Simulated scan of single mutants.
Amino acid sequence: MSLKYFPSVTPSAIALGTAFTHGTSLVLSAPFFGSAYERAKASDTPEEFLKSKEGAGALAAWGSSLVGAAAKTYAVAAILQSTGTLTQKGAAYLGLLIFAIGTVPGAFVNIFQEKRPGEYVLVKVASDLLDSVGLAALLNWWGTRPDLV
C-alpha cells in the first residue's frame, strides 16, 4: 500500500477540524466528564484520580475522541479535495451525505430496537448533524489543499 494515493491535506485544516469535531463530540459526553471532574476534585491527589477506574475511563474516552476526530477530519478533507468541492453549498451537501450514511442507521436502531429516550436520540442526531455539515463547511472555507495556500 502506497501513501501516494492518499490526498495531501494541510496540517492547519486537520488541526482546525480536529478541534471542531472534538468539541462537538464533547457536547454529548459532557455529563460523563462532569461526573469525572467531580470525582477528581474529591480525590486527594491527581495521581490517585488517574489510577482510579473513573480516571482511566475518562482519559481513554478523551483520547479516543481526539484520535477519532483527527481521522474523521482527514477523511472529510480528503473527500472534499478528491471531489473538487469548491462551494459552501457543495460542502453542505457532502456533509449531509456523510451524516446520512453515518448517523441515520444508528438513529433508527436507537429509536426502534434499543428504545432510547427521544431526547437522547434528538441530541445525538443534532450533534452529529452539526458535526458532519459543520465540519465539511469549515474545512471547505479554510481550504484543505496545500497547493492552494
Rank of each mutant, 00 (worst) to 15 (best):
M1V: 10
L3S: 12
L3Y: 09
L3Q: 10
L3D: 13
L3P: 05
K4A: 12
F6P: 01
P7V: 00
P7A: 02
S8A: 10
V9Q: 03
V9P: 00
V9M: 01
V9Y: 02
V9S: 02
T10R: 15
T10F: 00
P11D: 12
P11N: 13
I14H: 02
A15Q: 05
G17Y: 06
A19E: 04
A19D: 05
F20W: 13
T21W: 06
T24N: 03
S25V: 09
L26D: 07
V27F: 13
L28P: 00
S29F: 14
A30N: 02
P31Q: 05
F32E: 09
F33L: 10
G34K: 10
S35Q: 14
A36P: 05
A36M: 07
Y37E: 10
R39W: 07
K41Q: 12
K41C: 06
A42F: 01
S43Q: 11
D44W: 00
D44L: 08
T45S: 14
P46T: 09
P46E: 07
E47K: 13
E48F: 04
S52H: 01
K53R: 14
K53W: 09
E54M: 09
E54L: 06
G55N: 06
A56E: 07
A56M: 11
G57I: 01
G57Y: 03
A58Q: 01
L59Y: 06
S65L: 09
S65M: 11
S65V: 03
V67L: 14
A70V: 01
A70P: 03
K72F: 15
K72C: 12
Y74F: 14
A75K: 07
A75Y: 09
A75M: 14
A75L: 15
V76G: 06
A77Y: 12
A78V: 07
L80C: 08
S82E: 13
S82G: 14
T83C: 05
T85I: 09
L86T: 15
T87M: 03
Q88D: 10
A92N: 01
Y93N: 15
L94W: 00
L94S: 00
G95T: 05
I98G: 10
I98C: 11
I98F: 14
F99E: 04
A100M: 08
A100T: 12
A100R: 04
A100K: 06
A100L: 11
I101Y: 12
G102L: 06
T103M: 11
V104F: 06
P105T: 04
F108C: 02
F108K: 00
N110V: 00
N110L: 10
N110R: 10
I111T: 13
Q113A: 13
E114S: 12
R116Y: 07
P117R: 07
Y120G: 04
V121Q: 04
V121L: 02
L122I: 03
L122Q: 04
L122V: 07
L122R: 11
V123F: 09
K124T: 14
K124R: 12
K124Q: 13
D128T: 08
D128N: 15
S132A: 15
S132P: 07
G134F: 05
L135F: 04
A136I: 05
A137V: 15
L138Q: 08
L138D: 03
L138F: 08
L138G: 07
L139W: 09
L139P: 08
N140G: 08
N140F: 01
W141F: 15
G143A: 00
R145Y: 00
R145H: 03
D147I: 02
D147A: 08
D147G: 00
L148A: 12
V149F: 11
